[in-house]
Amino acid sequence: MMTENIANYQAERHAFRELLQPGCDRRILLFEGKSGNGKSTLLNHCRAHIPKESHHVPLDLRGTSLSLAGLFFKMIRQLKTEKFQYFADKVAELSGRSAVELKNAALWGNENQINVALQGGGNLSREERLAALTHAWFSDMQAMQRHCVVIMDTFEQANNEMKEWVSGEFLTEVANSENLRVTVAGQSVPDVSRIEWSYCCQKWILDGVREAKHWLPVVETLGKTIPSVEPFGFLQGICSAFEGDPAKIIDFIKKLPAKS
């Protein structure tokens, strides 16, 4: 993956590196910032630094049409080298099918079948079915030998059910799963007052990059020249004019003349 040109956010990048450490006890990292404040750039930078021996599940929640069944399907598809025995059995049980009938992942791990397990008839409510599937998924995750890093972006665009599930059961289970690390980014993020997982969470507010000194390396990397006799003052002027908005500043830098 291509690494992004990123200015500053040193502390946030450090927090992510800490998250990847084997003994890390704050397994949930939240990045909150308004549109254009560099969340996606930061996440792409973070993704590029995930060790190859770890699993990596990127989940873009944009477009409220992503359902919970779709999310499980995506997570399983991206971890296709792993077995999901508990989850497969639970899908079969909740769908009223036998594990033999749904013997391979193409049968139990597709979105439709997971949806049937979530909706199905019988006396269990959707909430109970979701809890059962979530618990089964985490049982499989905890049995894995490798670390897994889940990165979610554009949390604010997820639908209500997804937001409630991520903020509730999902992060609660993450808090109890030693080999799992999760980063959630968005214009809003799950409420950190949740007692079930807040103790193992860090939240960072991304507020833009206002100082020119942080942008000089980006100008250099992109091979651009600052068209002024006072390059630093010019760049600071741009940073101030855009109030540190990384999206606009990088856009401006990319439009600068190339170094001769």
């Binding site: 068209p227 010019f234 002027g237």
Partner: peptide
């Protein structure tokens, strides 16, 4: 570029 910066600062 100088002109753009001046306009941005005045916006």
């Amino acid at each position: 570029y100088a002109d753009l910066l001046a306009r941005l600062q005045a916006a």
